[in-house]
Amino acid sequence: MDIKKAVIPVAGLGTRFLPVTKSMPKEMLPIIDKPVIHYVVEEAIASGIDDIIFVTGRSKRSIEDYFDGSPELEMHLKGQHKDDLLKMVEDISSMVDIHYIRQKEPRGLGDAIMTARKHISGDPFAVLLGDDIIVNHTPCIRQLIEVFKKYRCSTIAVEEVPREKVSSYGIIKGKPLEGTLSILEDIVEKPSIEDAPSNIGAIGRYVFTPEIFDCIRDAGAGVGGEIQLTDGIRMLNDMQKVYAYKFAGKRYDTGDKFGYVQAVIDFALCNEDFGPKVRDYLKTIPDM
């Protein structure tokens, strides 16, 4: 059973990056010359997904424009015989089948995912959060899909998180099964350090059976009065097994200012054209 559909929620307000996110979605913040969301979509495609549902909100139109055709720009590049740039622009608009559904108001991640229910049509599906970039030879979602194919159960990506950030994540309690795979025993949304069952947090990659929708609906509002995905996962775990997988790869939380800067620097250093110049420049910066 392959996973061919993915939901990418991008309806958040991006308040941690105000004022720039007043008019620009945080998912469109550039990592050198490509926006964050481009890397997320590339991961989905590299994982075998060919049908993507963006859950958008107000002021997110630029995401739709980015993945749409651009006749004026394409005509200009063609007239200037800039064939490489023309191909790059055309490829963006033909990467994958993309659909857009609007979340009418920001009521939480669980609610955003619920809006895609009709399009999912009872199939297992992936969820990729639009502000996490994960770098690895085998894409993170592909790793989760392989676990799903073996066990036929929902699987969430997890990693150790710093103690001071425990209260920002859904924190799990797991029973080790094999390698980096655990059976989920419990998951708690944004617990205090004292109440957290571990320092292992769920990050922005999931593969779900369609039963997650009923669980999100029945769980209702949770922390902050929002409909939390974590509460739905917790209820799903009472019905069927859920697995937690410590993925291989490096994650950049670009929804966090420091995580965003890390991504920009690391991607710049890896650039074949100017990476060495960036490295030399960093060496010239005096200790602050």
Rank of each mutant, 00 (worst) to 15 (best):
I3A: 00
K5V: 01
G14L: 05
L18W: 00
L18P: 00
P19I: 04
V20R: 11
K22V: 01
K22S: 10
K26Q: 13
E27R: 09
E27K: 11
L29V: 07
I31P: 06
Y39E: 07
V40T: 14
A44V: 00
I45H: 11
A46Q: 15
A46M: 12
S47K: 08
G48F: 06
I49V: 15
I49N: 06
I52L: 02
F54C: 05
T56C: 04
R58Q: 08
S59E: 15
K60I: 08
I63V: 14
I63F: 04
E64P: 00
E64D: 03
F67T: 04
D68Q: 12
S70A: 13
L73D: 05
M75W: 15
H76M: 12
H76Y: 14
D83Q: 12
L85M: 14
D91I: 00
S93N: 10
S94N: 15
D97M: 03
Q103N: 07
G108Y: 00
L109T: 05
I113A: 07
A116H: 01
A116I: 00
A116S: 12
H119G: 13
S121Y: 09
S121F: 11
S121L: 09
G122R: 09
D123S: 12
P124N: 05
P124W: 04
L128M: 12
G130T: 10
D131F: 04
D132M: 11
D132V: 13
V135G: 07
T138Q: 10
P139M: 02
R142M: 07
R142T: 07
L144V: 08
F148I: 05
K149S: 12
Y151D: 08
I156Y: 00
E159Q: 15
E160H: 12
R163H: 07
K175Q: 12
P176E: 11
L177V: 10
E178A: 13
T180W: 08
I183K: 11
I187L: 02
P191E: 06
I193T: 13
E194N: 03
E194D: 13
D195S: 11
D195Y: 03
I200R: 02
G201A: 00
Y206S: 01
P210M: 00
I212N: 02
I212Q: 02
I216E: 00
I216V: 05
R217E: 15
R217M: 11
A219S: 15
G225K: 04
I227S: 03
Q228H: 06
D238H: 04
Q240S: 07
Y243P: 02
A244M: 02
K246A: 14
K246Q: 15
K250T: 14
R251N: 14
G259W: 04
Y260N: 06
V261I: 14
V264D: 09
D266N: 14
D266P: 06
L269H: 00
E272D: 12
D273K: 14
D273P: 01
P276I: 11
P276G: 13
P276R: 10
R279G: 09
Y281Q: 10
T284H: 05
T284N: 09
I285Y: 05
I285E: 08
M288F: 15
M288N: 11
